[in-house]
Structure formats: C-alpha cells, structure tokens
C-alpha cells in the first residue's frame, strides 16, 4: 500500500540528501526565484567554480533542478514537479494531524464522551 508511488524511496533519499546542505538549499532557492547560470551562482559563494558545479550536480541527480546548456552558459532552473512531490510527503502528515485535531474538538464538544 504505497502512498505516493510517484516517488521511490531512493529518489526521496536523494532529494532530502540534496536538501541537507545549506549551500545547496541556497542554490535551489535562487533557482526557484529565477533561473541561474552556473557562473553567476559561482560568484555568490566563497568556493571554487568546480565546487559549485558539484553542488548543482547533486541537486540535478535529485531532480530538484535541471541544467541546460545555452551557448557558452549552463543554465540551472528549478524542477517544480519534484518540489511539489516532495512536499506531498509532509502534506500527508499535515492532513492526518488536522483530522486528529478536528476529532479532538468533537470529543471535547460532545459531553457523552465525558
């Protein structure tokens, strides 16, 4: 009985692994706001171009971003489909807890449960 068969377990691990690093979260945040060239990203961080490229590659493997060559530039943009699927894992628990709170409210409102 798999919930969201759209995401396999190893896929989920890659996504959360990719998000575990603050630089990668920052890169993803920038890519969500606006597509970025790898060289523009590299200027934002006190690390080598190669190191930034590696972070982008981790995000790419997790399908959180897509990288595309345009002329001499590599452009990174956010993959909204994956971002949406990731959030659904937490959404499931959110719905469960909302439901629990509603049921608690019913118990409290119903004196026969006392």
């Amino acid at each position: 009985m798999v919930v969201d068969s759209a995401l396999a377990n190893d896929e989920i691990d890659r996504i959360f692994g990719a998000l575990a690093d603050s630089t990668r979260r920052d890169i993803l945040g920038r890519a969500i706001r606006q597509e970025q060239s790898v060289s523009a990203l590299a200027r934002q961080y006190a690390m080598s171009f190669a190191a930034v490229q590696k972070h982008v590659a981790v995000l790419e493997r997790a399908t959180l971003v897509t990288k595309e060559r345009r002329g001499r530039q590599q452009i990174v943009y956010a993959n909204r489909a994956t971002l949406g699927k990731t959030a659904t894992l937490l959404d499931n628990f959110e719905q469960l807890w909302i439901q629990r709170a509603k049921q608690i409210a019913n118990i409290i409102a119903d004196p026969k449960g006392e």
Binding site: D4, L7, N9, I12, F16, L89, N92
Partner: peptide
C-alpha cells in the same frame, strides 16, 4: 529523521484512510 522514515510511516496502512478523509 529522514524521508525514508516518512515514507515508511505513510506506507503502514493509514494512507487509505487518510486519502478518504481528505
């Protein structure tokens, strides 16, 4: 703890009930 744990918890069976409940 991690995404795999979340997925395992969701797989435990309550999902059907949750989906219906939404």
């Amino acid at each position: 703890i991690d995404a795999a744990q979340m997925q395992t918890m969701l797989d435990m069976g309550m999902q059907e009930g949750m989906t219906q409940a939404i």
